[in-house]
Design a protein around this nucleic acid. Structure first.
Length: 295
DNA sequence: GCGTCCAGGTCTACC
DNA sequence: GGTAGACCTGGACGC
C-alpha cells in the first residue's frame, strides 16, 4: 500500500532538465530511470523512518508515490519541492542570458535547475566526495555511505546516512569501508559537529550573510576549499561563485580559449556580465550537450 | 598479476 | 598572499 499525490509544477519547469542537469541524479539515494522519466529518492522522515518517493512527470504536474502507507504526505511534498527547487525563481536568470544567442537553448529547454538533496548535510558530504577524485570514485564513496550506513525505507531502499550515523564511525571505518582515503577524518569531524549542533548546514539555506561571508563559513569545514564551497553555494541557490574544477576549466579552454589553459581570472571575466548568475551561466554553458540531449 | 604513473582539490608548512 | 609537497584512490598503461 502506498500514498499517491500530485504537485503542480512551476511555469518554467522541465522535469528532465531539472533532474538531468546535475550529476547528483547518478548518486544514491537518487535512482533515475531516464527512459521512463522516473526519479526515485529516499530520505529521513521526521518520524525517524526512512521514506522513499517515486516522482513521475505528468503534464503540468508531478505524480508522486510515497512508498510507505504511513508516510507523511506533506513532508514528502516539501522534499520534492526542495530537491527540484520549485520555490526558486529563475526568471531573472533567463533575463540575464537572454541577449546571448548561445544561451537561447537554456530558456527553450527551461534549464538551470540543479538537482539537490533533501538536506544540506547530504549535499555537503557528497560535495567532499567529488573533490580530488574521478566521478567513479565519487560514486563509489557515495554508494558505500548509503549502503553501509543508510537506514532502509519500507521498500528496502536506503537513505543517505544521518550526521549521527556517520559520527558513530571511526576514521578507519571511512578509510577501509567507504574508501574515503584522506577524507576520512574530515567526515568524522564534520559529522560530529553537525550531530552536536556546533555546525548547522541547514541554516545556510536561510542565511542573511552575503555570499563571500557565507563562503568563509563553509570553508571552515575541513575538506572544503574554493571549488567545494562554491559548488555547495550553487546548491543553496547562490550562483555568484564559479565553482571551477578541472572539468569546468577544461570545458572552458575547449569552448572559449582555443583549447589552451588560461588563468581562472580570465574565465571569471568571461562570465562577469551575468553578475550574480555567472556560476549558473558557466554551468549551463559547459553542460549544453547534456541539456540538449535531455530536451 | 604486478608495478608505476597520473589526475583530481585541499591542507599544511613555508617563504 | 603565493607556492610546493603531501594526501589517497582508481584507472590506464607497460611489462
Amino acid at each position: 500500500m502506498s500514498n499517491k499525490f500530485s504537485i503542480p509544477t512551476p511555469p518554467d519547469f522541465s522535469f528532465r532538465t531539472a533532474v538531468g542537469g546535475h550529476g547528483w541524479y547518478d548518486l544514491p539515494p537518487f535512482v533515475y530511470d531516464e527512459a521512463a522519466g522516473k526519479l526515485g529518492y529516499t530520505y529521513h522522515g521526521r518520524s525517524g523512518r526512512a521514506e522513499s518517493v517515486t516522482i513521475l512527470a505528468n503534464g503540468g504536474s508531478l505524480s508522486v508515490e510515497l512508498t510507505s502507507a504511513k508516510g507523511d504526505v506533506e513532508e514528502a511534498e516539501q522534499v520534492v519541492r526542495h530537491i527540484l527547487r520549485f520555490d526558486e525563481d529563475f526568471a531573472e536568470f533567463y533575463e540575464a542570458i537572454r541577449a546571448e544567442e548561445r544561451f537561447a537553448w537554456v530558456g527553450n529547454l527551461k534549464a538551470g535547475r540543479l538537482l539537490r538533496s533533501a538536506t544540506v548535510f547530504e549535499d555537503l558530504v557528497k560535495t567532499i566526495c567529488t573533490t580530488n577524485c574521478s566521478w567513479s570514485l565519487t560514486r563509489s564513496m557515495t554508494n558505500n555511505l548509503v549502503d553501509k550506513l543508510g537506514s532502509s525505507s519500507a521498500d528496502g531502499r536506503k537513505a543517505f546516512p544521518s550526521a549521527a550515523a556517520m559520527a558513530s564511525c571511526t576514521p578507519d571505518f571511512f578509510r577501509d569501508e567507504i574508501r574515503a582515503g584522506y577524507r576520512s577524518p574530515y567526515f568524522v569531524e564534520l559529522a560530529e559537529s553537525v550531530a552536536a549542533g556546533t555546525i548547522d548546514p541547514e541554516a545556510w539555506l536561510r542565511s542573511d550573510l552575503p555570499t563571500p561571508e557565507l563562503k568563509k563559513e563553509i570553508k571552515k569545514i575541513k575538506g572544503i576549499g574554493d571549488y567545494a564551497a562554491e559548488n555547495l553555494l550553487k546548491l543553496l541557490g547562490r550562483y555568484d561563485g564559479m565553482a571551477l574544477d578541472s572539468w569546468l576549466r577544461g570545458g572552458f579552454y575547449k569552448m572559449h580559449n582555443r583549447e589552451r589553459p588560461c588563468p581562472d581570472k580570465k574565465i571569471e571575466k568571461h562570465y562577469k556580465k551575468f553578475g550574480k548568475w555567472k556560476g549558473l551561466a558557466i554551468w549551463c554553458d559547459m553542460t549544453r550537450d547534456w541539456f540538449e540531449r535531455a530536451g
